[in-house]
Each structure stands twice: as C-alpha cells, then as structure tokens.
Design a protein around this nucleic acid. Structure first.
Lengths: 201, 201
DNA sequence: GCGGAAAATTACGCACTGTTCAATTTAAAA
DNA sequence: TTTTAAATTGAACAGTGCGTAATTTTCCGC
C-alpha cells in the first residue's frame, strides 16, 4: 500500500493522472472509476479524492492531458509532412489519433463538466494548444489580408473534421454506407480553404 | 399496476417507447434506466425487459424514434421556409432540434450499441429518413450532371453541421470564444455547396 | 366453472458508484 | 524523544443498475 514517503504530492498527482488516463483508454468513460485508479496505483479511494477533490475534476484533468497528448501527436504528424501536405497531415492526424485512442478521444466529448467543477485556467490552456497548432497552419495558407480570419476559420475547420470523425467512429457513416470518411473530410477542408482564399492544391 | 388487458402488446411497446423517450429527455442518457420507465408506466422491470429484451435494445428503439421526430421537425422547418432559404432552414432545424431536445440528441451519440444487440432493419430505416430529407434538398440545388453525388455530399454536409452543433452544445466553441456557431456552420455549408456546383445565394 | 398459457410481479443476486470521516500511521519539527 | 500535523486507510453510507427465475395473477377457450 502507498506510503506517505513513496511519492510527493506532485508525483502522486502525476501518477494518478497517468494511471487514470490508461484506465480511461482501457475501459472508456462509462466504466471509468476512481476506485479502480486507486487500486492500480496501490492507494485507496480516499487518497485519490483528496488529491483531485472529485471524480469529475479528475476526469477534467485526464481529458486535458489527452489534449496535450493530441497536440504533440499533431506536431509529430506535421514534422513528417512535406510542404503542401501539411493541412492533410493535420486532418489525417486528427483521424488517426481518434481511431487509435478511441476511448480517450470520446471521453473528451462524453464528459459533461458539472458547473460546480469547471475547467481551471491551467487546464484550459492545455486544451488550447491543439487549436493553436491548427490556427498556425491555417494562417500560413491564407493570404495576408485574411490572416486575421484564421482563428475563427480554424475553429470551424476543426468542427468540420470533428463531425466527420465522429460519424466515422460512431458508426453513423457505416450505417449510411460510407466507405471513406477521411476522403470526405479532406475534400470539405480543401473546399472551405479555397473558398476562403487559401492557396491549396 | 399494469394488467394484462390494460394494453395490448403493441400498445405496451408504444407506451414504453414514449415514456422512455420522455425520461431520456428529462434525465439524459447517463441517468436513464429501464426501472424508472417501468415505474412511470405502472409496470415493473420484468415487463419492460420482456418487451424489449434489454436496456440497450430499448435505447436503440428510443433513439430511432428520436430520428423520426427529428425528421418530422425538419420537414416542418422546410414547410415554413421560402425558396432559396431551404438549406438554411435545414441547418437551422438541425441546430434547433439539438438545442431544444438536448438530451434526446446526445443520447443518439452517447449510446454505444453493443454488438450483440445491433440495429434491426426497421429501426435502421427510421434513422435513414433524416438523411433522405437532406439528400432530397441537396439534390435540388445541384446541377443535373452532379445529382448522383448528392447522397455522398449530403452525408458530408450533415457531418459538417453535426460537428459544429456538437462543439456548440458541448461547450467547445464557448471555450474558444466563439459567439455564433450557427453562422459558422452556415458559412461552411454554403462554401461547400458552391464548391460542388450548386447554385445558392 | 375450469384448465392452461401467457403476463406481470416479486425478490433476488451481483456488481458497482462517489463521497465522507473517524481512526490510524507516518514523517518531520521541536 | 516527544509532539504535532499531515497522509492514508478502510469502512460506512446511501445509493444505483441490470438481468433472471420462481411465483402469482389474469385471461380466454372450452
């Protein structure tokens, strides 16, 4: 069992977060539990509650961590992408992350944050990393006179890709007989970008 | 308590479905339960289980019913729409339905259908009504030589609107500082349609 | 009126949940 | 070494849920 000297407060926090994220990926949001996290790190439920205050707060923290993970993933996708294919790499990265970390990805959207919990500033910032990466790429393909629209357009593009990804993983597309959701998403992104004056091939 | 002669099998099925849908709207997917449905119709759990087999099957049926409701809603939106504003009415209808029947709408996407349950043919058909309405409208604004693309394009447009709607109701847009999600969705739809040769204003 | 069949109830078994808190253990300060 | 304060435990609380099987009730045809 966990002893006071085994981990500092910060270590414990990190341990719970990492283990919690692993559990989330394994069992999904619906079967996630603080008790199981505690069991896995060799502590008891009380300790988890003391560190994070509530299960909801823990889930918020885990999901924020997932955003960071996702952002890093996208950055790697961008590094391996040749010029003129960077937007494509981003969309592909979005789809691939969601597919390969299915439960982590859905937990972000399945968890309804109670008002009393909220999202602390430092975690909200983690979540914004992803948008920053996208906005940066979008800005770079927009003409100078429209770069100020990059932020709003990026939100919309991410929502577009999200919608396609959501239908793909949720089975809606399959039910409709759609065989290539990624192709669909990519077409839309290209069309939208062109319509907004971007030069994409 | 429910008596054998109070309701025929079909009546009972309809009663459970309607009451279940009301409950779903009230408490949301996470707090939905077959027991509560039974209590509300004056029967007990066993009866609900006998009629639908499992909670998952009941939820599948409720969600299919929601699709039908949604389709009717869109049809009404279309009736009250003037020419040249029909696509807009559709997008608005999508947003409004989701907003006003929030829990019904999310239940569709929150419920992961277990493999052993599946979606029976007659329910899958109910779900396709909505797409048919959209496809019909999209086809009517596409040039003749591209009408065969209407179906696939419609899927993609619905996914696009869904993504925006999902971000709007889930709070993602609010976190990003987005004030007008519908405007965003509408712009994208118009851009995509134009890019595909549709004549829209 | 009676018997059989279907319907509905009842009462379980079982496996969980988050949250709280008194009691205990532990580490560190005095 | 003793005191002190924090960390940790573990049990209690107050629920929740699904699914099922034995039992009772109801209804219909005879």
């Amino acid at each position: 069992m966990g002893r006071r000297s085994d981990h500092s407060r910060a270590e414990l926090e990190a341990l719970i977060l990492e283990t919690g994220q692993n559990l989330m990926e394994e069992v999904g949001f619906a079967h996630f539990s603080a008790r199981e996290v505690a069991k896995r790190i060799g502590y008891t439920v009380g300790t988890v509650m003391r560190v994070f205050g509530s299960v909801d707060a823990l889930v918020v923290a885990i999901n924020s961590r997932t955003f960071t993970m996702w952002a890093r993933w996208l950055e790697e996708c961008l590094q391996g992408a040749q010029d003129g294919q960077r937007i494509r790499a981003l969309v592909k990265g979005y789809f691939d992350f969601a597919s390969q970390r299915r439960n982590l990805w859905s937990a972000i959207y399945e968890h309804r944050v109670p008002d009393r919990v909220g999202i602390p500033e430092h975690l909200a910032e983690q979540r914004s990393q992803l948008m920053n990466i996208v906005t940066h790429e979008i800005a770079s393909v927009l003409p100078n006179e429209r770069k100020d629209e990059a932020e709003r357009l990026s939100r919309s593009l991410v929502a577009t890709v999200h919608g396609h990804c959501s239908f793909a993983l949720g089975g809606s597309f399959a039910l409709m007989g759609e065989a290539d959701p990624f192709d669909l998403a990519m077409r839309r992104v290209a069309e939208i970008l062109r319509a907004n004056g971007a030069n994409v091939d």
